[in-house]
Design a protein around this nucleic acid. Sequence first.
RNA 1: GGCCCCAUGGUCAAGCGGCCUAAGACACCGCCCUUUCACGGCGGUAACUCGGGUUCGAAUCCCGAUGGGGUCACCA
Length: 526
Amino acid sequence: MDNPNKTNGADPRADLPGEVRVRFAPSPTGYLHIGGARTALFNWLFAARNGGRFILRIEDTDFSRKVEDSTRQITSTMRWLGLQWDEGPVAGGPVGPYFQSERLDLYRKAADELKARGAAYDCYCTPEELAERREEARRLGRDPRYDGRCRNLAEEDRRRLVAEGRHSVLRLKTPKEGQTVVEDLIRGTVVFDNALLDDYVLMKSDGVPTYNFACVVDDHAMGMTHVIRADEHLSNTPKQMIIYRAFGWDPPTFAHVPMILAPDRSKLSKRHGATSVEEFQEAGYLPEAIVNYLVFLGWSPEGGEEVLSVDELRRQFSLDRVTKNAAIYDTTKLTWMNGHYIRTIDLDRLTDLSIPFLAKAGLVTEPVDPSTRSFVKAILTALRDRVKTLGELPEVTVYFFRDEFGFDPKGVQKHLSSTDAAGLLDQARAVLAGLPRFDVEACETAYRGLIESLGIKGGALIHPTRVALTGRTIGPGLFDIMALLGRERTLTRLEKASATAREGGPWPEPVDLGYPTVPGQAAKTS
RNA sequence: GGCCCCAUGGUCAAGCGGCCUAAGACACCGCCCUUUCACGGCGGUAACUCGGGUUCGAAUCCCGAUGGGGUCACCA
């Protein structure tokens, strides 16, 4: 005799490492969505805080031929963010495989068990018929739900349908009465009427499970203790609870975190600009800034700090300080935070992170030699608190790397259009040329001296010099620029600018290095 | 449309019955610092969706309305 409980066994959780087990289960869509990243982050932090394990599972039950590429993309971005998983692709683990596409046998077995328990049944209705009936129901103003006609099929009818060559799907026999109660860590108690639940599909006709089914089978088999996921899954939860109950399994504890919405309050999608972590990565955002920003979308620390290190987050994160309301995603604060990290992280690290951006613009060639590296480092010292993203770097540093850098017409107009300016530049050049040492202090002393002896205001000399040396009116301190440029280039540029000023131009046009892309702010500019 | 969730400034948010004539951060606006631009410092504008209750007392509890969001597939 069949023992309906025989495959229940012990709760898998009992034998698995970690008291707390949580997972992030993305489907391989090609990139790591910003909302997904936050869900992953919450899970990761929750595991860290509770001494648990963080599992990565790829939900690739959909067709998708790019599974491999997509998975690589997602995993590499997660690593870049610092969200290492304890079990999952590459890492392996005791309850693998961690790709749903490799777990098909498990689902089939589980499906058979459910059928044996009388909790599910084969349905032979074709998609066309279903669509037709849905349409019909809609027309009559009824809920477009499955009518349950295969729920209690007589054996001979079943045979007839098979003989017609029909394929079947497996449907769950959902209870017609009663309620399903979800005790959610964030939402509290949420009650759903079973009567509203459809006999939805568990296994598709091609033998592949649907999301809700695979999700339950895996969460159970993988010993999940908590399921932390986006709010959009809350309405799926009763369906999943019923499956757990049908198997006789204890469901995990659920926590539905609020969604991240686009500025227009709708669900975040591609048309809202940057929605993937990769886009921010390419634009020169630092992982710590993204993590820091993301965690504050829905969570806040007890102390009210706005900037917290990852270590601090791992120590402080808790689900009971997660808000219930959806957050609108706005990059302004992220950009500010990125600027904060740019000016506070270790300089060597900043240098290493910056070089690829300069290389991409052709300003340096990788691998950089030591002297170039220290030059970049010195530039960064002078410039780091003036940029918000690494992507802006080429734009604001060209003149350090190239002698053709173009002049801002307004700057020229304002500071280099008179012959006075040319004269000033000549005098400055003479003074600088005679300096025994050419460093920040020496340059400044020389300039201050010249300014005083000419009886002019500092700006009268400094502004024209800045434009002459950099082509623009903004940038680091002038004497830092001189020291960075070195005597030779400084003198040459002064001379050249003076000559051009005398001739009244022409001044080279600013070069286009691809303007800094700040994702999500495109809409603002237009 | 049914069901579910949510509701404090432009945005993120603190607040969990009296400490609220409501924190903090970003953004914005002034001022200061200053060779520019930043950074930094100081200050300012700006919010409890509405209506009923409960209570001595409500941003906080209850109900309703309104608004927003999610979900209703052989997608995940």
